[in-house]
Amino acid sequence: MKMTKIVRTTADVFYPFCLVFGLYVVIHGHLTPGGGFQGGAVMATGAALLIVAHAYEDITGRIRKTAMKILEAIGLLTFLFAGLSGILFHRPFMANWMAQTGKLFGNTVAHGPNPGDLNTAGLLPLLNVGVGIEVLGGLTVILLYMLSGIKEEKKP
C-alpha cells in the first residue's frame, strides 16, 4: 500500500533537506545546540518520510535493511573504540586525550563567548558522529521491521 502521488512527491523533495539538516546538527554538535542523538533523530525523520510515503517493495531498493543494521553496529563500535583509544596513551576509559593538544580536533578555545571553530573539542566530534550514525540506523531499522511485519500479515 502506498500513499497518493502528492504525498510521495513531497516526501521525495523533502527528505534530502532533512538529511542535510541532521548532518549539520551532528557535525556541529560541540558548537551549537543539539548533538549526536538529536541529529540522528532528525536524519531518521527524513528516512521515515520516505518509508511512510512509499510501499514496502519500492522502499527496500532505496533503503536497505542490512545497510542500516551495519550502520547501527558501526556507530556503537565507533563510540566504544573512541572511548577505548585513550588507554593507548595511558589515560582512563573515555578520557578526552585529543583536546587542547594542537593537533587533530585540538585547537585551544578561549573562555567566554567566541565564534565556533570546528577543529576543537578532541574526542567529542567522533563520539557525536558515532551516536548519530547509530541512532539513524537503529530508528530506521525499527520502522523497516514494522513495515515488513505488516506486509507478511496481509498476504494470506
Partner: peptide
Amino acid sequence: QEQTGANNIVTS
C-alpha cells in the same frame, strides 16, 4: 569550556 574545548557546554 577550557578543559574540553567545546563551546556547547551541554555536549561537553
